[in-house]
Nucleic acid binder design. Structure first.
Lengths: 310, 310
DNA sequence: ATGAGCCGATAGACGGCGCCTATCGGAGCC
DNA sequence: GGCTCCGATAGGCGCCGTCTATCGGCTCAT
């Protein structure tokens, strides 16, 4: 049994396609095919359902796949550990983030890159469900997401900040002059919001519902930049997270107004999650060290204060 | 990096000797040497301190060694898992036991062998410290030892029985007719006991001390069979665990007398320990399944009752 | 129905490297 | 100084992982 063959299996399961998996492994398609068959003969068990096309793994194949991921992860951790002993981390830090947390990743990555200049970072926008899957399959090292998600199991959580909400509204709009607005008020203005499929939106809807209001956005989109793109027209308002300020600031001609919180202690917590089994990865340890000292919460709070004062 | 090379490294660390490690891997000495050097060049780090003789691993080597053991263990677990899916476990169950628990292992192994006829069992007598080391280094799957040992860390415990103590004494001796004896009384008769280095003996000494008595054995030995060998002469008595009855029974011309317990709730607990990381090993799971249903405690209790009644 | 296109398996050749046996160089020891 | 033990080196063999080229079969559209 060769580690290479395990890589083939993992790639095949990921790509669901022999030729693409081979390309991902930088080998020819026959090589990958042969590797899989060799693995099958070594383990004396069929791993893939052989047919005209790729039709998934056998039950045994799934089990082997799981083990293979663990073995390969151990190997990667070994190499990272050695790199760490040499004084510098190398390789790739693979980060995921839900779209609404994407904006703050730079607060982490810039500091991380300063400390570990040999590391390249892969940052991917993912749904919270995908984050869990990718963590479990060793395909990302860590992710930024809401921490109060019931589906977060088998992970370790590291809070970074608590989300606060602002109404971003045209300077000449009805709410622009107020020091704060209620959620019910906000529901009355023309809105652009994220899609209902997204966790951020569902949180907002809960706040609206708490004041017996319902938001009826004119536009729904599934990315934060898509949302801002619409705001630029000056026709709409939106409810934004204070964490987004640091990325886009406040578009020209607009104002932010704080949304009255029914209960400040229930601000949704956003933070890093890492697989419970990744505790011993040098890369993850380095990330957590940076995250611990990054002062994300304070930086965002200061930014919020500055924007509200202006 | 090849799995084989990791095996070489583990073997080398274990044997402390290139030629012996090679023999353990069933390869020639140059092959093992080459494998180690290849591993060093692949990882680009020296792993062994190269000198005229083997002088230990480098710090990096120790780290790699640790990872190597984990990787190889994952591989073994994979193969066991497949064997389990085929309906029968194969391979080797590697068990350790402290000498005083050695006698009861057969209660587990016989049942285990019945359920899993393809599995061979390696049973080794080990000190409790060695048990911890071997578990950590993936060299044994599980072990029988005292569970109230402070050094038991990073393991999962599964109690099997609580040790009760008996005075095994010549039929014509002073205590033979009594229904029970105190520890102070027992300290007065000529004794054969286990060595002070052994945990069982230290437990006995605590019981003696609780009655302000001190045992002064005429003979100390470090194996249970060595102890029984002396008892055969009919000159000595000994304090035995009730678990030993099932192995040696009661030698001809001798009697067992129960030792009065100051506090029955403080009987030392004996059980299985497995490495915390071994939870997902098919072999370990099978062992625990057998151990759970073996009724070791009841079997030993019944045996004790039978011998005391006779 | 038939041909185009995609997918995975097969054939055959090349080359790396893991393994062997045989031997060497060096350290420690009577 | 010779003996012994240990690990490194030399050189050859053979397996197998890799490649390119091609085949067989399925799906789908014309």
């Amino acid at each position: 049994m060769l580690l290479r063959q395990l890589e083939y299996l993992v790639a095949l399961a990921r790509e669901g396609h022999f030729a693409r998996a081979a390309a991902a492994c930088f080998v020819s398609q026959p090589s990958l095919s042969a590797g899989i068959r060799k693995l099958e003969s070594d383990l004396d068990v069929p791993l893939v359902q052989h047919g005209a096309r790729f039709e998934g793994l056998t039950p045994e194949g799934e089990r082997v796949l799981h083990r293979a991921r663990r073995i390969l992860h151990e190997r990667d951790a070994l190499q990272q550990e050695l790199a760490e002993m040499r004084g510098q981390l190398t390789g790739t830090l693979r980060l995921g983030a839900i779209p609404t947390a994407m904006t703050v990743t730079s607060l982490l990555t810039t500091q991380f890159c300063e400390h570990h200049q040999q590391v390249t970072i892969e940052l991917e926008s993912l749904s919270s469900r995908d984050i869990m899957r990718r963590l479990a399959e060793f395909e990302i090292d860590a992710a930024l997401t809401y921490l109060d998600d019931g589906a977060l199991q088998g992970v370790r959580k590291f809070p970074l900040y608590e989300e606060q909400y602002l109404l971003l509204t045209p300077g000449d709009g009805p709410c622009a002059g107020q020091s704060d607005v209620s959620w019910a008020q906000a529901a009355e203005v023309p809105l652009v919001l994220l899609s209902r499929r997204m966790r951020n939106r569902r949180i907002l809807d809960e706040f609206f519902a708490a004041e017996s209001a319902t938001a009826s956005p004119a536009v729904e989109t599934d990315t934060v930049d898509g949302l801002y793109a619409h705001l630029a027209s000056g026709r709409w308002s939106s409810v934004i997270s204070h964490a987004w300020l640091h990325m886009f600031g406040i578009p020209a001609g607009m104002r932010v107004v704080r949304l009255k919180e029914p209960d400040a202690s229930r601000r949704p917590s956003v933070g890093l999650v890492v697989a419970a089994h990744a505790r011993e990865s040098a890369m993850v340890r380095a990330l957590l060290a940076v995250a611990g000292g990054a002062g994300v919460r304070d930086a965002l709070d200061a930014l919020l204060k500055a924007h509200l004062d202006s």
